[in-house]
Amino acid sequence: MQAFQYARPESVAEALAILAAHGPGARILAGGTDLVIGMRNGEIRPTVVIDLKRIAELSAALQVEDGHLRLGATTVMRQVERSPEVLRYFPALAEAAGWVGSVQIRNRATIVGNICNASPAADTAPPLLVYGAVVLTASPSGERRLPIDDLFVRSGVTTLQPGELVTGIDLPLPVKPMGSAYTRLTRRRGTDLASITLCVGVDEAGVTRLSYGSVGPRPVLVVDETGTLADPQAPDAAKAPILEEMLAGASPSPRSMRAGPEYRLAMLRVLGRRALQTAIERLAKGMAR
């Protein structure tokens, strides 16, 4: 690994100042599980690395306030996976976080880092989309609240501006009882990058939110408000065309080593049906509000 400068600011303001001073040569270090790999293989050669972990305001405990759950910029997957609040209100997010890498990785990797890298295969993106997460940012020109659906552009590219820092994620508590489920497709059962990520949420009002990733440049969110998908009594024949339309946004790359496009598209449907079924069952069991 080549030399760089290391900064360990203690406030967001200080971090923003360093970001502003170094421009594109600055890189944010939270968990480091992607950054350090990139720096070691020479793909990323920063002039300064800004470590966020000493900024107290970014690492507050996960807690519910004002009708939402706040995740900090340095909140790691292991915290998300085990947080009683996440398990209670956003179980599919806990499932997704629990699938990321190994325990060692989940002890370091942050959920904010996961979305800022904008990998189409990011496990936490589909549940965050389904739950309507809002990304909180700070920059010299002020703070923003960005619906997560407006964050992703394509692999490695987001709508974040130069000098802008993600300080956290807000998850609005579901107002209606909701059942949700996360699922993924991999090459082995052990840790693996997903060739499909998929999350479904159905609520009491019959709205179905479906999000899927790893089958296009960015994760996709689609919503069905007809009530048919969420209806446990509706026949498969009625659901199939709706699901089909919702999955039409998938365009998996033919260059992928992990799975061919044909298989991915077929599995999207299989996993979509299964996750929908699980979400409906969970709603019925009252597993989540």
Binding site: R187, R188, R189, G190, T191, D192, L193, M257, R258
Partner: peptide, 16 residues
């Protein structure tokens, strides 16, 4: 070889 290294050459883990 496109899948050099541990990320895209998969071997069994304790979960497999």
């Amino acid at each position: 070889v496109r899948n050099l290294g541990a990320i895209d050459y998969r071997i069994p883990t304790s979960k497999d």
